[in-house]
Design a protein around this nucleic acid. Sequence first.
DNA 1: TTGTAAGCGTTATCAT
DNA 2: ATGATAACGCTTACAA
Lengths: 342, 342
Amino acid sequence: MDAITIKDIARALNLSTSTVSRALRDSYEINPETKRLVVEYAERFNYRPNPIALSLKENRSRVIGVVVPQIANNYFSQAINGIDAIAYSRGYQVIIFQSHESYERELLTVQQAVARKVDGLLISLSGGTSDVSHLRDLQERKLPIVLFDRVSKELDSFCVTADNFTGAFAATEHLIQSGRRRIAHLAIPSYISITQERLAGYRAALEKYGVPYDENLIRYSEFSQNDVEPVVNDLLNQSPDAFFAAGDRLALGCLATLKKRGIAIPETVSLIGFTNTPVADLLAPPMSTVEQPALDIGQVAAEQLINLIEGKQKLTQPGMIRMPTRMIVRESSQPVGVSKPV
Amino acid sequence: MDAITIKDIARALNLSTSTVSRALRDSYEINPETKRLVVEYAERFNYRPNPIALSLKENRSRVIGVVVPQIANNYFSQAINGIDAIAYSRGYQVIIFQSHESYERELLTVQQAVARKVDGLLISLSGGTSDVSHLRDLQERKLPIVLFDRVSKELDSFCVTADNFTGAFAATEHLIQSGRRRIAHLAIPSYISITQERLAGYRAALEKYGVPYDENLIRYSEFSQNDVEPVVNDLLNQSPDAFFAAGDRLALGCLATLKKRGIAIPETVSLIGFTNTPVADLLAPPMSTVEQPALDIGQVAAEQLINLIEGKQKLTQPGMIRMPTRMIVRESSQPVGVSKPV
DNA sequence: TTGTAAGCGTTATCAT
DNA sequence: ATGATAACGCTTACAA
């Protein structure tokens, strides 16, 4: 724990700390010889500037705070991966906070981040968050904030999300074109931005093809996997011929329930999940997927934030970036589970 | 960004900073009235001590560093979840670093963590790490370190892992008892601790039941999903009647390959994955699972580390905690994909 | 070209 | 009971 400091170098070389600092910081007024000496010594003893001292001095930390509802979630961990990649390449470190889908936790967690003097905040709103005044306050105090995935129109900030409308439209259109008419729509709680957009895409596609919109085919489910099953069972009473599950865990929960009930996909119903689980590949062919570009969203959001932090973009001008989604069709006519001998 | 400081309070109340500090820290020699005043003011203006200043002063950060091979990995994100829960409940924050399965990155990343003055380090070794002297150095400098999951016997430290031997033994035993004799064993690179233990469990079970050990049935695969398929195909040439995939992504890759080849599970072969993907539930019944208690491992490791940090446990005494695994049998006689109408 | 000193926010030591 | 001062590691006017 006895890391070497500028002071140590100064003492050893009989210089002042300021000279050492200058030598290391590549400053102008410095004797090349002195500089050589210092740099050499620093290297030899593996000197690393103390980031904490720097933070205190410069009132910034080169840390960006990331607040997500859950870390242990495929979508968010991939997004974090993207954030991390960009952040590190631009010299920032990342501290991750979880809101556990709770507004109170989000509040607390954001405070902690601010206390830690993060240079900026990357947030995907918790499921319980409808009021964003805590974030607005921070923005007014000039803290750069970028929202991703779960964004809010209530806040004038940069937002990066998947193109939910188009993705949902494409999914619904595909289902309609393959002959389905009673398409159940399974969504997470309704006040969340992405829910609205996906539902809008769904409705728009129905409208385009003159398929009637039936409210009974729309259901909302909480976040836990267990909550999905009863909702799906309930939907099944509406004799749907397809499911569009507008979320990762919803899609998996739906799939599991259908399997459990012995309902063949795609024979009996068709299923498209708006999802990010790479494991979805395993489920081929039952479930087609509208892929959420989690990694890209993380990367773009991090880029935006760092530009904001470094003043390469003005804080005041909000903007919305929608990352394209990709639809992967995995509906083969081949029944599931057909086996041939080795 | 204009957070209130002790200085501000002092100025406003016409006190010295030291008095304010004392009032807030509940120190002894302090006029109750003064204290009341200070505390009130602090609360009113929502004073929060600057953790960075504290870190600089106390040469510790109340931050623990976590180094994992990949964040976007079900196992590790769950483990991080466990770590996070314990850490926050004990007043620590968590900074996450990725080694990307590379020794060099691990080295670098650990240095960064140390520079950030983390109070302790929780590490799951990268796949590329065989030499652990960088960690030994840190230990000698009295930095508390706890290894989890991917541990090394080369380092005298606390280790927390799944009970890999017993888990692998149980899996293999189950396969043998259900009549399988040529059990392919699919593992991640061989110099990793968990690989060795799982292989040992496998061999022990074979021995117990007098099933011959055939080297041709053992294969190692790299980490990426794509690497798995050729290895599985290769194994299939050895006419196995079962697969034991000793890892999360291996199990999924194996499953995907078998599906692709149209090989029925469990009719043609049997499959047990040593895994953590909750989605495995979806794949029922084809794959039975030996569940790795990722969350528990994270929690226990974090607890150990914090005890170490806070001196509740001496640094010198290494120890090994093995968290029990749980086997979930999902081999029904019902063929996969059989469907009945709604 | 180099050194001195102040300051970032906090606490501990030593006065008063 | 309270205040002044130094110190944590670093940078940056300002002096020399």
